[in-house]
Each structure stands twice: as structure tokens, then as C-alpha cells.
Design a protein around this nucleic acid. Structure first.
Lengths: 194, 194
DNA sequence: CGACTCCTTCTACACCTGTAGAGGCCCGTA
DNA sequence: TACGGGCCTCTACAGGTGTAGAAGGAGTCG
């Protein structure tokens, strides 16, 4: 993926996050990226190609983030909960658009199966969760990592789409992080059975 | 809402579930509902009106379901977990389309705030969860019900969009229900702190 | 019976979108 | 200098989409 394509893909992610999949058109991406009309259409000839570029770009960005996060993950459950809470808080603030775009793509993948392979939603986080749970002495890390990932996914989704947000502290605040920490600690306690 | 409008709204929900928000057009709904072209456009003059009809219909269907469920909710945590698991399993099988459509609408509501009020995602389930958690002796039912709803939401979402599904039993099977039961029991244990 | 009203269907039309291809610019090479 | 190729921009066009309004038709009341 050339640098220009990456820039267009980034613009496309922004479009998806702010206007939804329906707003994702070649021309809208051109406008967002500040390039002449027709550019996006030249790099991604069909709409399908454009969507795939978005999905691929999201996957690439995720990979980078997961790889970096792996470097400093604490094994103490309390510290772990706080670390996860910080990541989630970032997903809901600076990474908000990416997170929204990802949810939109996941929904899209429901009827376009070829996207599923690229997105592989939760696979990387889950692998990491599995390792962690094993290290923490979980009995069934495979299943329990699924549960943990589902839980954090639900937390993020509920807050992003507004429902959770109505009664929850604003993302980016210390209260938000501390409340997330509490929730995740509870989830860890639950899946670990202690 | 007249009967005819309800039928169109139901067709629209099906369209959203199978083709995504992008596929939701007046003509597509006409085709799905088996009515002459132009009918949907006559009943819902603008696209915004059409989307709002979908959202409203989803809310109505939810209300009916929540009201009915409230009638037989057990207070024993284990039985409760199983009851919730059954509801979720239904959401993923017979109610699959509605659930997918709801997620699509929730994402849409992110950039169309007027939808949020109608959808009020999680409000009704949360109210019920709050009652239950209080009855079960929870310390902070308000916050904990948020967590519980987020958890079941994550469970359903992950399985519907495929990620969780890859390593999970197929919805509609006894194994699916029993695994969901285990997961929800763990969540209850977690949020209740026991 | 005639007029009126409501519900439904049909049709028109401007605009938007996806997609293809023609042209233009820049730069390295002979 | 002339040439060729890769990247970029522009334009055309067929088809789809949102929206408005006209036409038809059945039932109702005077």
C-alpha cells in the first residue's frame, strides 16, 4: 500500500466514522482528503476496493497497536485492569473514529464475507487475552478470553453509541478510566471465578 | 402507525439487516414488501422519515418483548443466568435480523442525534437489570446494571458479527445456551462481587 | 346521482454515484 | 532534444436514488 493510498484510506476511515458506510463514496473521500475529485476513484476503481482498503487499513493500524501494547502488560490483575481501561479510554477518545469505523465494517462484514478474513475482529486482542488469562491461572483460557473480549467490546460499544454514555463519565476523564477499571476488574473476577 | 406502515417498516428492517444501511432505499423496501414501486416513498416521503420508521418499529418491538419478559424472571442467580441466555439465544436466531438492524441503527444514531431518543438503547433492559441486581443484593445497581448490559451486548455483538462465532457453538443449539449461561453466570458473579 | 375525501399507484426529474477512459504533467534515458 | 512510462487529473455517462406531484379508484355523505 503506497503512502498516497494510505492517506486516502485514512480519509475514508474518517468519512465512515462521521457519515456512516452510506456516506462512503469516492467523491466524499476525495473531499475529505483534500485531493482533486477522481483521485480516490483512480486508486480504488470500484467501491468494493474502497471498502476493502478501509478494512485493510484498520487491520494494519490495529496490528501496530497490539504489537506495541504487548510490550508492557502487567500480570497483576489490578494493574492489568487499569492498563486495559487506559487502552479502552483511548479507543473512545483519540481513537474514537477508528473504533466507530471498525464497528461499521464489522456490521458490513456480516453480508460481505470476504471482509471477515481481513478484519479478523478480536482475534489479536483475544490471543493476547488468552496468554494473560493463562498466566493468571485461568482454567479455560480459550473460552474465558472470548468472554473477556466480548465484555470490553460491549463496554466500548455501549459508550460510543450513547446508551452507556448517558450514565457514564465522559471518556478521557480520570473518572472514566477509574470506572472502566472497576468494571474490568469485575469482569476479570468473574471469568477467573474468584 | 397504521398497519400498512408497520408492514413497510418490517420490510425495511429486513432490508437493513441483509443489505445494511446503505441498501435501505425506498425502492428496495417496496421490493421486499412486495408492494408497487413508490409505495414506501408515499408513506415515508423522505429518507430520514424512513430511517426513523425503522428505529421506531424496532423500539416498539423491543418494548413488547421486554414487557413480556418481565413477567417471568427468576431471582435465583443460576436460573436468572439461564433465562438471560435463552433471551440472547433468541436474539441471535429468530431475532437475528432485528438485532442486526438495531446495531446498524445504533451506529447511525451516532451522527443523527434525533434518533437516539427513540432508540434509547439499553434503557429498558437496563431498568430491568437494575431491579434484578437490587433484588439480588447488589451494592451499586445503577453502575452494575450498566456493566451487565454492556456484557450481554458484547456477547451478542461478537457472535453476530462473526468473531466470537468462529470459536463459539452455533446459536440455537443447547450448547450455545449452556455456554451463554456460563458466561452470564460469570458476569453476574463479577458485578455482584461474589 | 354527484361531489368530496382518503388511500394508493404511477410518473417525472434533478441529483448523486460508480466506473471507465482520455488526456496531461513530470522525470529519467538515449 | 525527443521519447517513453508512470503517476495524476479531468470528464463523460449510464444507472440508481430522493422527492414531488399528478392520476386513478373506492367508499361516504348530501
Amino acid at each position: 500500500m503506497t503512502e498516497r493510498m494510505a492517506a486516502l484510506a485514512d480519509a475514508a476511515i474518517h468519512v465512515v466514522a462521521t457519515k456512516g458506510m452510506r456516506g462512503l463514496t469516492h467523491r466524499a473521500v476525495d473531499a475529505q482528503a483534500g485531493v482533486p475529485t477522481g483521485s480516490t476513484s483512480a486508486y480504488f476503481r470500484t467501491r468494493k476496493a474502497l471498502v476493502e482498503a478501509v478494512v485493510q487499513r484498520l487491520a494494519d493500524l490495529d496490528d501496530a497497536e497490539v504489537a506495541e501494547a504487548r510490550l508492557h502488560v502487567p500480570l497483576d490483575p489490578d494493574l492489568l485492569a487499569e492498563a486495559i481501561a487506559h487502552v479502552l479510554d483511548r479507543w473512545m477518545t483519540t481513537g474514537r473514529e477508528r473504533t466507530l469505523a471498525r464497528y461499521a465494517c464489522l456490521l458490513e462484514a456480516t453480508h460481505h464475507h470476504e471482509l471477515r478474513g481481513i478484519l479478523a475482529h478480536g482475534e489479536r486482542p483475544r490471543a493476547q487475552a488468552r496468554e494473560l488469562l493463562s498466566a493468571l491461572g485461568a482454567r479455560d483460557p480459550e473460552r474465558q478470553s472470548r468472554e473477556l473480549v466480548a465484555f470490553v467490546d460491549g463496554l466500548v460499544f455501549d459508550r460510543l453509541v450513547g446508551a452507556g454514555a448517558l450514565g457514564a463519565p465522559a471518556p478521557g476523564t480520570p473518572e472514566s478510566v477509574s470506572e472502566l477499571t472497576t468494571a474490568i476488574r469485575a469482569a476479570l473476577r468473574g471469568v477467573l471465578g474468584k
